[in-house]
Design a protein around this nucleic acid. Structure first.
Length: 435
RNA sequence: GGGGGCGUAGUGUAGCGGUUAACAUGCCGGCCUGUCAAGCCGGAGAUCGCGGGUUCGAAUCCCGUCGCUCCCGCCA
């Protein structure tokens, strides 16, 4: 007998098959019993005439929701069945794993309980789809990189010294001494440039000890990092990122566009190239014109509301979901961002907003040893701790730049999710280390 | 780190000084010519987050505490 997935059932009408899955619903009547069975490919009705097999009827009566069963029977076309117009006439049924009655969550449950019982919540087709989309997106990314001779790197997550600011690092015991969890592969991907790798990417975890209580922050998340050599400016990096994202969205739309529309009510728009660019100075004008006041101690950066305003403006004016904010002042950027030769207060950097949400920070990096060292000193950083990093630029390093990109934030924007927790298999935040 | 909101059956909510603490859903039992958001009847299930206070009387008001959540800061 052939074992099939539910999706394949229409191809097996009038055949004997075996299906396996979860019991979603049992409707037990006087003479008929119906089960809605769910597997990862879909849902299917199972039907049983009680009289035909009282023993089997007994088993079906005692089924609990979410039990795992294996069923054999004949696939029958039946136009009156609302679920796909077909059903299986059950002949045999085996309970592989009985679920305790009374599930701890249901569809209407609050976000927090649902995270407590994540493995049950993830069974919902809608939630599974998030990760099917994630898989397709990552695959499309790799496809794009592979065609362009990128090298995939896996940088260490244990570090002996802080990689960037130091303020948001997790510290841990390391034999007799101390180590840190990497909050970015930043320095290592730049090291790969010094190593002559030309173009690299990494998809991996990063750790940030930020007590951030928002819908878009996590203490551990998957970062996508890209770095390329031989660029003329950050424009080359933006051109790469927008082409890459276009490819990702094309792929996702082709394969999952319909199901995404059905489950999330969102249309995937394949973005036009190039994405609109708004220099920071202009962004401020747009925000001011909208009547929103930026905080005075903001040092020239946009606040989240400002970002949403600029995104809305671009959407209205250019009909585009994406916008690159460029030319950030040095006050809000790290020391290693390159500055314009003629405007030393402005960095050759950018953020990418998608539907008003920040999903990327990128820049051309300063690759000239002396300049970099000077900028680090100005920023008040300890040259001793930075020595290993500064050394990358001492023995010949090409001009380069890159970006960091939040995977869960991308899914959040793409699918219109309320928060990043839904787009993370197992979320980690200041208040959550379990499950 | 700052500010706001919320903690009531398994789940989602109502009640906001005096009720046997209500409703929905789920669960258990019964009924039901093929159901499909099934329907009908019955039942069990809550020391109203915890501690203290005010009051003749507290789920309800006050204080504290813990937990969750949203926004800001920070960022991806």
């Amino acid at each position: 007998m052939t074992t099939i997935t539910i999706r394949q059932a229409p191809d097996f009408i009038d055949s004997q098959v075996r299906v396996k899955g979860w019991v979603e619903k049992v409707r037990d009547q006087k003479s008929m019993q119906f089960i809605v069975l769910r597997d990862s490919s879909g849902k299917l009705q199972l039907a049983h005439y009680k009289k035909g097999n009282p023993e089997l009827a007994e088993v079906i009566s005692s089924l609990t929701a979410e039990s795992v069963i294996e069923v054999t029977g004949k696939v029958v076309a039946n136009p009156s069945v609302k679920l796909g117009g077909l059903e299986i006439a059950v002949e045999g049924l085996e309970v592989l794993s009985k679920a305790a009655p009374m599930l701890p969550i249901e569809e209407s449950s609050g976000a927090d309980v649902r995270l407590d019982w994540r493995y049950i919540d993830l069974r919902r087709p809608r939630n599974r789809l998030i990760f099917e989309v994630q898989t397709a997106a990552e695959h499309a990314m790799r496809e794009f990189w592979a065609e362009r001779d990128f090298i995939e790197i896996h940088s260490p997550k244990l570090m002996g010294a802080p990689s960037e600011s130091g303020a948001e690092l997790f510290e841990l015991q390391y034999f007799g001494g101390q180590a840190y969890l990497a909050q970015s592969p930043q320095f290592y991907k730049q090291m790969a440039m010094a190593a002559g790798f030309d173009r690299v990417f990494e998809i991996g975890p990063v750790f940030r000890a930020d007590p951030s209580f928002t819908s878009r922050h996590a203490t551990e998340f998957t970062s996508i990092d890209v770095e390329i050599s031989w660029i003329d400016s950050h424009e080359d990096v933006m051109a790469l990122e927008e082409a890459w994202l276009r490819h990702v969205l094309e792929t996702v739309k082709a394969r999952y566009g319909e199901r995404i529309a059905e489950m999330f009510g969102v249309e995937i728009v394949v973005p036009e190239l190039p994405f609109p660019r708004v220099p920071m100075a202009q962004a401020h004008e747009i925000v001011a014109a909208s009547g929103h006041q930026l905080a005075e101690n903001g040092k020239g950066d946009l606040d989240p509301e400002g970002e949403r305003i600029v995104a809305r403006y671009v959407q209205e004016k250019h009909g585009h979901e994406f916008v690159f904010i460029t030319d950030y002042p040095i006050t809000v950027r790290p020391f290693y961002h390159m500055r314009y030769a003629d405007r030393p207060q402005i960095t050759k950097s950018f953020d990418l907003l998608w539907k008003g949400l920040e999903i990327t920070t990128g820049a051309q990096r300063e690759h000239r040893y002396d300049v970099l060292k000077k900028q680090a000193q100005e920023a008040g950083l300890s040259l001793k701790l930075l020595d290993f990093y500064l050394d990358f630029f001492k023995y010949g390093c090409p001009p380069h730049g890159g970006y960091g990109f939040g995977l869960a934030r991308m899914l959040m924007s793409m699918l219109g999710l309320k928060n990043v927790r839904e787009a993370t298999f197992l979320f980690r935040g200041p208040n959550r280390l379990e499950p």
